[in-house]
Design a protein around this nucleic acid. Structure first.
Lengths: 198, 198
DNA sequence: CCTACCGATCGGTAGG
DNA sequence: CCTACCGATCGGTAGG
C-alpha cells in the first residue's frame, strides 16, 4: 500500500526526511548537505535515518525522479493538446513556472543536482530530463511546420535557452518579493515567446 | 610585482592551483571538491597547497572575483557605447557568450558557486554580480526610453531571464559539439532580443 | 614542497 | 528510533 511518491503525500517519517532533504539539497546543494544536517532538521539522530532510507544517494534519486515527474505530468497534457503551437508553448511555460512556485527547492534539485547521481542512477534521470525537454522540442517543431514559429530557429538551442531561463527562476524569485509567480510566469512567457514567433 | 589576476597569466604554482580549482569547482561544485582533489590534479601533496593559498574559500573568492571581472570588462564598454540599445544588447550578449566559451568552468563558478562564500566574502561578490546585472538593466531601460524596446517589460525579470538563459549555456554547450560558441551566441541573441523589441 | 599529523566530520552499521 | 561506534575523509598546520 505504499506509494512511489515523495513527501507531502507521505506525512510519516519518510516524508519528513525526504522533505528536509529536498529543502537542504536545494539550498545548500547535494554535496553541501550532510546526513547530520538532514537528521537535525527532522529532529532525529543521524543513524536513525537509515531505518527509513537506504542511502543519501537513494534520497537524491527519489527527489529527482519525483521532481521531474511533476513537471512532466503538468506539461505533457498541454504539449499533446490540440491548440496552436504558440498557445501550447505559452501554457507550458506557465505550467512549468507554477510547478516551480509550488516548491522552488524541488525544482532546483530536479534540474541542477541530478549530476551528482552515481553511474547507475544518472542515465535513467537523464532520460527523464530529455523526455521533458522533448516536449518543448516537439511543440517548437510543430510551430515551425505550421508556419507560426521562425523557420530559422535552431530548435535545441532555443529550447535549452528557454529552459535555462525557466530553471534560473528559483535562484532569484524569492529575493524579489514584489511579484507573484503568476506575474513572473506571464512576463517570462511574453519575453521568450515573442522571440520565437514569426 | 605579483598581479591580482588569476590563472593563465600566472603559470607558476599558484596559477596551476587556481586553474585546477576552477575546473573542479566548475564541474563538481565547490562543496563537492576536496583540497585533495585539487592537490592530486596539480600533482602535489594536499598540505603543500597551503604554501601558496590561505584557504579553500580564499581560492573561491579569487576565482569568483576574477571571473565576474572578466565579464564586466568585456561587456561594460559595449553597454556604455553610443550605439542603439538593441545593437548594444546584441553585442553584450555575444561578448558574454564569448567569455563563457573562453572558459565555461570559470563562468560556472562565477555565476553559480558564489553562494558558498562565507559571510565576509558574500556581500562583495554579490555587489560585483549586481553591478554586472545593472549593465543589462541600464541598456534595457535606455531602449524603453528611446521607444525601441517594449515599454511593458518588467526590466528586472527580463534581465534575469536573459542572464538565466546565458548562464545555462555552460551546462549544455559541450555536449552539443556541432555548433560553435559564436553560432550559439547568435542564436541565443536572436531568440532573446526578438522577445523584447517593439 | 614533503613528512607527519591534528581534531572534526563524513556516510553508514550492529545491536538493541 | 537510540546507543555506540566504524573506517574514511575533511580542511588545515608545524616543522623542516
Amino acid at each position: 500500500m505504499s506509494n512511489g511518491d515523495v513527501a507531502e503525500r507521505d506525512s510519516g517519517p519518510l516524508g519528513a526526511i525526504t522533505s528536509a532533504a529536498m529543502h537542504l539539497f536545494g539550498t545548500q546543494g547535494y554535496t553541501g548537505t550532510s546526513m547530520r544536517d538532514i537528521a537535525s532538521t527532522v529532529g532525529v539522530l543521524p543513524g536513525s535515518l537509515y531505518a527509513h532510507i537506504r542511502s543519501k544517494e537513494a534520497l537524491l534519486v527519489d527527489i529527482v525522479t519525483d521532481g521531474i515527474g511533476r513537471f512532466q505530468r503538468a506539461v505533457q497534457p498541454i504539449a499533446l493538446s490540440k491548440q496552436s503551437a504558440t498557445e501550447r508553448m505559452r501554457r507550458m511555460i506557465l505550467a512549468h513556472v507554477e510547478v516551480v512556485s509550488d516548491n522552488p527547492e524541488r525544482a532546483q534539485v530536479a534540474f541542477h543536482q541530478w549530476r551528482f547521481l552515481g553511474p547507475d542512477s544518472l542515465a535513467p534521470a537523464m532520460t527523464l530530463l530529455h523526455g521533458y525537454e522533448d516536449l518543448f522540442v516537439s511543440v517548437v517543431r510543430d510551430g515551425i511546420a505550421d508556419g507560426i514559429l521562425r523557420p530559422d530557429l535552431n530548435i535545441r538551442i532555443t529550447v535549452l535557452s528557454m529552459l535555462g531561463a525557466l530553471n534560473s527562476i528559483p535562484e532569484w524569485f524569492s529575493s524579489q518579493g514584489s511579484l507573484s509567480m503568476a506575474d513572473i510566469g506571464n512576463v517570462v512567457a511574453d519575453t521568450l515567446l515573442m522571440g520565437i514567433q514569426i
